[in-house]
Design a binder for these strands. Sequence first.
DNA 1: TAATCTTAGTAGTAATATAATACTTAGTCA
DNA 2: TGACTAAGTATTATATTACTACTAAGATTA
Lengths: 125, 125
Amino acid sequence: MNEEKCEIVDIWEVLGRRWSLHILKNLTTHGTVRFNEIKRLIPEISSTVLSDRLLELEREGLISKKIFPQVPIKVEYSLTPQGKELQPILHQLNNWVDKWQSHRIENKFETDNQNVKAYRKAAAR
Amino acid sequence: MNEEKCEIVDIWEVLGRRWSLHILKNLTTHGTVRFNEIKRLIPEISSTVLSDRLLELEREGLISKKIFPQVPIKVEYSLTPQGKELQPILHQLNNWVDKWQSHRIENKFETDNQNVKAYRKAAAR
DNA sequence: TAATCTTAGTAGTAATATAATACTTAGTCA
DNA sequence: TGACTAAGTATTATATTACTACTAAGATTA
């Protein structure tokens, strides 16, 4: 992994990366988890990206890892105090998602997104 | 824009995309905003991506747009009721970011991230 | 009169991020 | 002996995002 590309400018950037919120949400609900446990909880994520995200989150001080030097090795991830302060927020976010997820499916074919092209023509009378 | 690639599976996916949270945060704090206004508020974002994100957020029912067929055209973006329910959550998130942003900078060179490679060697004695 | 500016994007291409797959390590189990 | 384990890494392929330049019709400026 390149060191340069991991110099992330701010926390929004990290949170805005794919899977970050997912990972934090799972750490929030499951407490201490291991690498492959997260992979099982989020089956669509690849090892590569999970590894990157965990390193970024660790660097940002959101999670910490504990390594057990066994064979095979064991690594446990958990939230730091900073990460724990995110828990209530993530909970609320999760509730919000659950609430609207169903609505979204119902309204899927009703939404009438406005498109600028048509209105440009209208303006060009 | 390809229709297929815009079929997004869930809200987490949309929120987890780059700039989404940023855009929502700015809509939360500024109310009704126009396209170039957002670009000014988030100078690093490109037109291409801002356009994509706004469309996705509109499709998910988080924001709505109002088009004024003038020349030059005017488009206003604002939060839907669903989007407005995110406001308190985004506020808390924003506070959390502000709180820890400074810590992060201070601790930047103190963090001692654990790395598995070293421990594998330890285990391999 | 003509060049320039305006807005909310789009088109095309370059750069970057993510995905898929195979591989590593040393010990345990069959 | 060979398969299996966990937590990744390396390599290559694909998808996303960024970076220009461009559009349209009118208003402003020179």
